[in-house]
Design a binder for these strands. Structure first.
Length: 403
RNA sequence: GUAGGCGUAGUUCAGUUGGUAGAGCACCAGUUUGUGGCACUGGUUGUCGCGGGUUCGAGCCCCGUCGCCUACCCCA
């Protein structure tokens, strides 16, 4: 028996319904905010992710499904969604239009990691990317939008926010931090020592207890922001306060991808295991440039669909459509033909074998049909059908034409 | 890559100090000839993950292997 690959899952029945409900809800909300659908390839040139997500990131350095295709191209399965959307934005030369652009997408992402609760090798994200809007109002609006999606899905969450600074205030801070970390590097873990060279900001997010115990005295970017970043971040907190959205400023919040600047945020849940991030995002004003576009401010986010699957409160399933069956073999084909016509309008479940009344009624329940429609000996003879409304329990025998 | 836990019926699991397997759920059929969800009765289902070893005998003990889960790392 061939089973799906490690970290990959089939989706069916209840889970499939949840999945569709999540996506349709998110799409519905995104459209209200003016987002339109974009679909980009799952396979992209490897350099796209090296240049956007960042060479030093774990995603690029060890988690990509990367290979050479038959034409000798270095390609990989997308590990996240933003890079592809930005590439598409630049490919279509939208960076040369003064118009603001907003896109939503959803689909599979691939990362070659060790699977655990809430972490798969193939997983799905719903995401939005807003181009051309530098205002912090947009950062705020995105956060409101995610809150609204979660609210409609019945999901509780905590919101963490931070500012990652910009090209003006980040470099001096970074130098400052590297100095601090270098002084205590003897006591930091192996990973952190590596991070000092590659991406010192990530040290702040280290889960190692020893490291964390040394970090409270570390310089915080939030205390060293430039005027513009400082005022934007302050504005964001004010807007969130006014909107009544609770948040925690987490100065150790570092997004895993290199392209973020200024606003970074993460929605987390404490009900789903160690992998608690259910949505994450932020601003990435330099990414369009990195990918050969004209400077274009941008901000976006992604929701991890599998991460919120078990959190979603599903609406009550409603009885729908018809169940049709025959109680004498001669009536089977009559039932099938009748069902064909009915299906032009309604959902119909047909039982092909002639069965007893009781057996059919069980089938009606199983199919969750609103109406039971049966043809027995009498109905066949008289050219009628017996129909019962399973909710009102009202039943009657009517002519074929009437049905 | 590292650590721990687990692989027995479709599913969730039980299986005593080693004596060639069981329950609930699900499924199917009935419960006086055409009224469902409930209840009752009956029935079907397993190369006990795979390969070796110990033993008269292994689901149980030993070794290996594969797979799954959880956690670290990292992140949605």
């Amino acid at each position: 028996m061939i089973k799906p690959l490690r970290g990959m899952k089939d989706l069916m029945f209840d889970d499939a319904q949840r999945f569709v409900h999540i996506v349709t809800t998110a799409v519905k909300v995104a459209k209200r905010y003016g987002y339109s659908y974009i679909e980009t390839p799952i396979l992209e040139e490897t350099s796209l992710f090296k240049r956007s997500v960042g060479d030093s990131s774990d995603i690029v350095s060890k988690e990509m499904y990367q290979f050479e295709d038959k034409g000798g191209n270095d390609v990989c399965m997308r590990p996240e969604g933003t890079a592809g959307v930005v590439r598409a934005f630049v490919s279509a030369k939208l960076d040369r239009q003064p118009m603001k652009q907003k896109f939503y997408y959803y689909g599979p992402m691939f990362r070659y990691e060790r699977p655990q609760k809430g972490r798969l090798r193939e997983f799905h994200q719903f995401g939005c990317e807003s181009f051309g809007e530098a205002s912090v109002y947009e950062d705020f609006t995105l956060i409101v939008m995610i809150s609204q999606i979660f609210k409609e899905l019945g999901i509780g969450f905590d919101l963490l926010i931070n500012s990652l600074g910009c090209p003006e205030c980040m470099p001096p801070y970074r130098e400052n931090l590297v100095n601090f970390l270098t002084d205590i590097k003897e006591e930091l873990c192996e990973d952190c020592n590596r991070r000092i060279g590659t991406n010192p900001i990530r040290v702040l997010d280290c889960k190692n207890e020893k490291c964390q115990s040394l970090l409270p005295q570390s310089p915080k970017l939030i205390d060293n922001l430039c005027e513009s970043c400082e005022s934007d971040f302050k504005k964001l907190t004010e807007l969130l306060d006014e909107a009544g959205i609770a948040y925690t400023v987490d100065t150790n919040l570092v997004r895993g991808l290199d392209y973020y600047n200024k606003t970074a945020f993460e929605f987390v849940s404490n009900e789903i295991g160690a992998q608690s991030a259910i949505a994450g995002g932020g601003r990435y004003d330099k990414l369009v440039e990195y990918l050969d576009g004209k400077p274009t401010p941008a901000v976006g986010f992604a929701i991890g669909i599998e991460r919120i699957m078990e959190l979603v409160k599903m609406p009550q399933p409603q009885r729908e459509g018809y169940y049709m069956g025959a109680m004498v073999p001669e009536a089977v084909e009559k039932v099938i033909m009748l069902a064909n016509d009915k299906r032009a309008q309604k959902k119909v479940t047909v039982e092909y074998s002639s069965k007893g009344f009781k057996s059919h009624m069980k089938g009606v329940d199983k199919s969750n049909a609103r109406f039971a429609v049966l043809i027995g000996e009498d109905e066949l003879k008289n050219g009628t059908v017996w129909i019962k409304d399973m909710e009102s329990k009202e039943e009657k025998t009517i002519s074929l034409e009437e049905f």
